[in-house]
Amino acid sequence: MTITVEPSYDDVQMLVDEVWTSFLGSEEPLLPGAPTDLAVGWSAAVTVSGEWHGMVSVELPTGLAEEVTRRMLMVEETLDEDVADAVGELVNMIGGNVKSLMPGPSVLSLPVVAAGRVARPSDSVEVCRLDASWAGTPLLVSVYVRKDA
């Protein structure tokens, strides 16, 4: 039987904040937000497997995903492949740091990116959920672990 260990909300919030301010600038802070039903335009996920098993996902409305892409690539116009790349790198950075919060060693997967919601494995439960907003737009970071049999 695997023991379900989960990252603390504060740790996840802190590392997401660091990813955000490092690459998207500190003039607009990432603020904790109330849970909303956000219109997911883009999402991305990475899985962690080894001593700890889990999945980390990021969900963003289209406009925000595009803004993130513009800031990372320093371009005016974004193609879908650019957005997929940038959102993928975002979840890679968040996921890699979540992995380090947990008992290791574990392996991080390459990101899976989707226009819309990425499917999460049916045998998993959400153990940490960070609702936030940036420049008035909501976003969601979640950590899932496998349900104990």
């Binding site: 660091e18 990813v19 490092s22 690459f23 890679n92 950075m93 996921g95 890699g96 740091n97 992995k99 380090s100 290791g104 060693p105 574990s106 991080l108």
Partner: peptide
């Protein structure tokens, strides 16, 4: 320059011959 930030992974990369290690995110 990577998001891999487990202590053991950093040790492993240095042992393999990496000179330095920057953890993402960075400024």
């Amino acid at each position: 320059v990577t998001t891999e930030s487990e202590h053991g992974q950093i040790v492993k990369a240095l042992a393999a011959g990496a000179h330095e290690y920057v953890i993402k995110p960075f400024t």
